[in-house]
Design a protein around this nucleic acid. Structure first.
Lengths: 203, 203, 203, 203
DNA sequence: ACATACGGGACGCCCCGTTTAT
DNA sequence: ATAAACGGGGCGTCCCGTATGT
């Protein structure tokens, strides 16, 4: 009934150590030797779990994606209505992104470190961002907000702005806390009957 | 009126070549040798103008900052009122960030590539972002919008979201175009007499 | 009369497989994993019989020493006189060393692969070579040849020259066949009454 | 008129350091990192002179071949007649091979370390050994000895026996000194008018 | 100012011999 | 007995900054 709980598997140790280093220093600045040294794992062990450093990065990103959704769902569970979930989510984002230990969004880091869109890790980042946008759009639709697709896109922009702000301004002048207010403003703008965005008349 | 323009100085050639490479591939992925090869400048020449690669990056960022303001001012000149300038700016951002040749914001790239906030290039990025926020706040204040500081922060978040989106989604599903609509919504929210942001009543 | 012969013991399978690989590719180029894979023995089993790869090599060399003497005695048995045994031995050596499947002398290989004379495997090689020299000297003495010690040394040199030639020239231009003629010449030189070797007159 | 004599070129430093290490420890036991550390040469410099470790080994062997002939010719110059040259050569070999600092023949080492005859370094070793045999045969022919080809082969066997003995027995019981006596015996055997070698019947 | 070389170091991927868990 | 893990090392590539030649 217990399955190897005292010592986490080398794969998990690798991903955990690598993830911490990647978040703090970036994918390119962290060499596998450092990951191995800090995780106490042998080099051959790494290459039996992952074919290359890039694959380890991809595996880490997949895991981070799952962890993000777990965190996001937990944050949204506290609200009952779709609109409440949206607000709760952005309040949680604002709290997290303005906390000093937040290092930003690893998917942004992956998209920056691997600029070629065909790169597997870049693709994972794109898929993650699209999924987040989709989720926001779905909530907007469930909340009967006007132009849910446009709102989803706008909220996604705001979200990414908060993450990059968290990384840029770590302690000082961190603007990420304002993301919740901005999100509420956008939601409110799509709550009123008279449309502002979308196809009303302009653009 | 300007002299010696047919042959740009080695320093300018270096910064131009390096800038193009840095934007496309990132600061870490571009080696000094490639910059030299593509610019046709000798290595010793580089080190007579810049003490190190980092200093060259810093010089490039300073130049990019000036170029950004030149571009931004040009975009805003087309409008007469402060509010119009804000809108014009975000429309220009939306056009640029959603164009396929846009590679995102180099200051974000610098902040990601050099995560330590004490790093000179990171500091330049922070200063740039603070200056942009300040400019947006000033325009909001000049436009007599409510809570100009809060609006400036929110617009800055939106702006960074657009830049990072431009880098992440290059061609496909690029959401950066929506930044103008979102900005207008936030501006509108701060135009109404009854405050939405800040401490009024909330949600 | 001998029991359990259909399934040789893991130890014997290891030594046989390892020996074949060592002879062909050398001690350093053959890894433990390959020996295990080709012999079908588990790794732990190997380390239950031998404390290390070096000890397995040593065990293989001891076995090869016994096999050498078995082969040599068989070759010499065909002659009745000590001198005849010497000649028969070198004729057998010439035949073997010039055959295409001969891979040379493993003791030479051990002496080359482990140059430190204190190394156990090097020591085994030295002892083997000394024993061969001693045997040749004894036969020379029994044959009443002049200066049997000197002749033993010279014949040993010739013998080693044949082995190394067998390894160097595998198929083409193999000179090892000439070892028998050379040995006979040296034996003849020590058959004459008037000494040629030793301190006769010159340096 | 002087061409960079104060500091030997990196290539020469590499070959000298590598040669000393290869002779003492063998080709496989010496890694390029150790060669670089002991020679004070950068890794990239090595790979600008040699495409691989194997090519460096081959270059070292070619240089060793030239040095061998220089040494051999010097030894043979002291004698006037072809037969005297043969004797002088083997006396020099005996002196060198029995000296404690002699580490044997690097071509034998190459032939053992790279057993495949197609391997470039093995080929160099084969060519070296064939050239030595040819030289001995030529001298035997010039000396009007009987059956010069057979004598050349036999002397070559003896020579290789001396080299391998020098490597196997370093200090103790080194038999290499006897190579000169043995060579003289073989030369004497081929000096007499009536042939000893071949098929006659003996002496 | 160019061009080439160099030293030093990091890194990626791989393999080896050995030990420890299952 | 299967299988995984581990420390250590090896090779080849790359990069940065300096030092030459010239």
């Amino acid at each position: 009934v217990l399955t190897a709980k005292e010592t986490p598997s080398p794969r998990d140790r690798l991903l955990e150590t690598a993830g911490a280093l990647f978040q703090r220093y970036g994918f390119q600045a962290v060499g596998i030797d450092r990951i191995l040294a800090e995780s106490g794992v042998a080099k051959m062990t790494l290459y039996r779990y992952f074919a290359s450093k890039d694959e380890m990065i991809a595996a880490y990103l997949e895991q981070a994606d799952a962890q993000f959704w777990s965190w996001a769902n937990t944050a949204m569970e506290k609200a009952a209505t779709p609109k409440g979930k949206l607000v709760a989510f952005f309040e949680a984002v604002g709290d997290l992104a303005s906390s000093p230990e937040c290092l930003g969004c690893v998917f942004q880091g992956a998209a920056m470190a691997f600029p070629e869109i065909e790169h597997p890790s870049h693709q994972i980042a794109v898929r993650h961002k699209l999924a987040v946008r989709e989720r926001l759009t779905d909530l907007a639709r469930e909340a009967k907000l006007t132009h849910p697709e446009a709102l989803g896109v706008q909220l996604a922009l705001l979200l990414d702005g908060a993450w990059i702000a968290a990384r840029t301004f770590r302690q000082t002048e961190n603007p990420a806390k304002s993301v919740a207010q901005a999100a509420k403003a956008l939601i409110d703008a799509h709550t009123r009957a008279r449309s502002q965005s979308g196809s009303s008349k302009r653009r």
